[in-house]
């Protein structure tokens, strides 16, 4: 049973937004959960966050970083993905925290609208802080703004909004004492550095970990991370965890396990001259 891509769009350089027809995922997915796709019979299973749902359709927003995402980006409306499994992982802990700050970096920004919406609907005051290299990478900005009481935008180059990083804005908010709960979603190093800001304030800080995964259902241990000295499987115990409990160095080291293989796969894909754009 293959899953149809109903809509496919490049929304920024190297970043794509797809809507896939997968009712079993769409009808049950909540903010914070992810899905796993396998494009075809030779494909790898890769995890992608549920960025939005609409009826039978589920949205993914992904960055082209290697073989699978590069190949995925060549697909379009009407093409099929062989396998889509989900929703996976625990949903974000949505309740009336009070004043929430949701922070996104890189492709993690696209994970925020669904989260902000759920927090807003539960009575929270939601502040969004997003940071990117430049204005074009502020993914789904307007959609996110519609679910936030305040949205602060940062760019590294100052081409739009605040010239600096989300962590600077977060620090200000924490100093003002207006924060009850924080979510940080982005590359591991960004989550690590940003989350250090909340430590002195003893504020609940959720991060969404992104270790390497195979099944996503808890049967292999590939995604194991160390939380407060204990081994947890990010795909079933997470993917969200309390930031201060995470062994970040271990996570980032484990993410590098296949760097050699990934490079080889990318080179082979880039050399491939077949017109079909596939294997």
């Amino acid at each position: 049973m293959a899953y149809k891509i109903e809509k496919a769009e490049m929304i920024a350089e190297n970043i794509f937004e797809f809507w896939i027809n997968a009712p079993h995922v769409a009808k049950n997915a909540r903010a914070g959960q992810f899905l796993v796709i396998r494009i075809n019979d030779k494909g790898e299973r890769i995890p992608l966050t549920v960025s939005g749902v609409d009826g039978d359709l589920v949205r993914i927003v992904f960055m082209k970083v290697g073989k699978t995402t590069m190949f995925l980006s060549t697909l379009g409306e009407g093409d099929f993905i062989e396998d889509v499994a989900g929703p996976l992982g625990h949903p974000s802990e949505i309740k009336d925290w009070g004043r929430c700050v949701v922070i996104g970096g890189g492709v993690g920004i696209a994970c925020l609208p669904i989260l902000a919406k759920a927090l807003k609907e539960s009575g929270n005051e939601v502040t969004g802080i997003i940071g990117a290299r430049n204005k074009s990478l502020l993914l789904l900005k307007d959609e996110l703004a519609s679910h936030c009481d305040e949205l602060v935008v940062c760019t590294d180059d100052g081409s739009f909004g605040y010239h600096g990083f989300p962590v600077d804005i977060l620090k200000k908010k924490l100093e003002e004492g207006v924060v009850d709960c924080v979510w940080i979603i982005g590359p591991a190093i960004m989550m690590k550095i940003t989350s250090l800001a909340t430590v002195p304030y003893n504020v609940r800080t959720f991060v969404s970990l992104n270790p390497i995964m195979v099944d996503g259902t808890g049967m292999c241990g590939s995604c194991r991370v160390t939380i407060d000295g204990e081994t947890k499987f990010a795909c079933v115990d997470g993917p969200e965890f309390e930031a201060a409990s995470v062994d970040w160095n271990e996570l980032m080291t484990r993410q590098r396990i296949y760097t050699e293989e990934e490079l080889k796969a990318r080179e082979l894909f880039e050399d491939h001259t077949c017109e079909c754009g596939g294997h």
Binding site: M1, H24, N28, D83, V84, A85, G86, P87, L88, T217
Partner: peptide
Amino acid sequence: KLNHIVGRSVP
């Protein structure tokens, strides 16, 4: 039904 994780895909 493949790709259906009972508990998640099937509440």
